[in-house]
Design a protein around this nucleic acid. Structure first.
Lengths: 136, 136
DNA sequence: CGCATTTAGTTCGACATCTAACCATTACCA
DNA sequence: TGGTAATGGTTAGATGTCGAACTAAATGCG
């Protein structure tokens, strides 16, 4: 039953994110695209490999995700001068403008999920989930 | 961060299930196929619509999932004599034999996740997740 | 009764995701 | 130094999943 609940919550959170993105004229983008943008907001330009490791997706998946973001004009890709195998992904000007939107979405999702939770309950939930995560 | 943890746990649980299915010579099947079989074990034969509602997938998705199970010989589909629109899905003999395997997989996943948890902690986790689920 | 609406399933096209195979380039070592 | 191994990315093919359009059958209403 834990697994069931976790799966359902994940599904619903994903739908919330997709719907929110659509509302902010980001029609057709998935949570993973948001994850990539978010990583770039926080950590700045980085390689495909690092992106893959942060968002926990395979490198081939990151290739297609990033290509879509490039086509949409939100990120740029250039070759690392120090290593020609490496591509460095960075936010474009338009990409940077999405930061507020993504932060908003993340916060409103969180506040909806946590409705009626005390701070102590949130902490307890995080502790328990962290242990589940370590066991998995 | 909750959403992150939940997503990661779900991913890992799914991989655990897929790997376990493969070990039991159920190569190429996904957790959702297991969900369908499980529903049939518990509730007996039912329509596509009911299956979709129980496993929380769209009916078009259930069509393809069930087709794969039919091809593999684990379930049968026949028309409901009372309503020609309805297809009734039921377990075949080989399908029924999978019950023990699926129960095993489910139990070993659960016992791995819950390693080090007291009964009270499990209950508390379920309570908190249920509330998250209601809010979502 | 007859036609419009609802309902159960399938089909179609799109997409995120995976694995495996492949291509370049860099790193390592004998 | 030269060749083999490792590494970063892309491509190809498969699959679960979705929404939308479609078909067929049942329901409901005038």
């Amino acid at each position: 039953m834990v697994v069931y609940l976790i799966g359902r919550i994940r599904d619903k959170a994903n739908r919330f994110i997709i719907a929110s993105l659509r509302k902010h004229s980001l029609e057709g983008f998935a949570p993973s695209h948001g994850d990539i943008l978010y990583a770039l907001f926080i950590k700045g330009p980085m390689s495909m490999k690092d992106l893959a490791s942060i968002i926990h997706r395979r490198k081939s998946t990151v290739t297609t995700l990033v290509n879509k973001l490039i086509d949409a004009g939100y990120v740029n890709k250039e070759s690392d001068p120090r290593d020609d195998r490496v591509s460095i992904i960075s936010l474009s000007e338009t990409g940077r403008e999405l930061k507020e939107t993504l932060v908003d979405i993340s916060e409103s999702l969180l506040s909806q999920l946590y409705q009626g939770f005390t701070d102590e309950e949130k902490k307890e939930l995080m502790r328990l989930l962290a242990r589940l995560h370590e066991n998995a």
